[in-house]
């Protein structure tokens, strides 16, 4: 058992355990903060896979952006004065049965396939150069479309979330 195995199991354990806490915690704040650990664990696995730039983007976009947005959502939709921050669950047994079946099928497919199960070449320098090159040559149309999508989402979110003005 070398250092890679130890790091993999450590980050996998962090990721899975905090993902379970996200789903099972009764308090929304606990869910949000364990989502933070899930994102950190995933970022560590990205580093282990040699995708350093993706790992940094994961930390910046998910932890710095989406998680803060979710925390704002929690604070804006729960009246702090009336402590109604706990939520319940419903249809637990059928949901767990269905998802266990789905996970079983997925794992059967993953383990039954004959993958090219050896890492090609551990990258010795940063992947940012290769990524930028591909992004602005082969995938430049999708890149531009994503820019437009982000602009539309920004305008749409501001339009939906603001207070409606009184129609005079």
């Amino acid at each position: 058992m070398n250092i890679y195995d130890i790091v993999f199991y450590l980050f996998a354990a962090i990721t899975l355990a905090s993902a379970f806490v996200v789903v099972t915690a009764r308090n929304i704040i606990y869910s949000a903060f364990s989502l933070l650990f899930t994102f950190f664990g995933i970022a560590g696995l990205y580093v282990l896979l040699g995708a350093d730039f993706i790992a940094v983007v994961q930390l910046m976009v998910y932890v710095g952006g989406i998680l803060v947005l979710i925390l704002f959502g929690v604070m804006l939709t729960n009246k702090i004065t009336s402590v109604q921050i706990k939520t319940g669950t419903l249809q637990v047994i059928p949901a767990i049965l269905g998802t266990a079946l789905m996970a079983g099928v997925l794992i059967k497919i993953f383990t039954g396939t004959n993958w090219h199960s050896q890492m090609a070449q551990y990258p010795t320098k940063t992947t940012a150069y290769a990524l930028g090159h591909i992004l602005l040559t082969d995938y430049v149309l999708i890149f531009e479309l994503l820019g437009i999508l982000l602009l539309i989402a920004l305008i749409g979110a501001a339009t939906i979330a603001r207070k409606e003005e009184k129609a005079s």
Binding site: T15, L16, I28, L90, Q91, A95, I96, A103, L106, F110
Partner: peptide
């Protein structure tokens, strides 16, 4: 690991009541 995480996420979407937890 990815399959397990996906299954946990689907379970959360199915069983949780709060819309923000469904989001997470």
């Amino acid at each position: 690991l990815s399959a397990f995480m996906f299954a946990v996420g689907v379970t959360g979407v199915l069983i949780r009541k709060n819309a923000i937890v469904v989001f997470m």
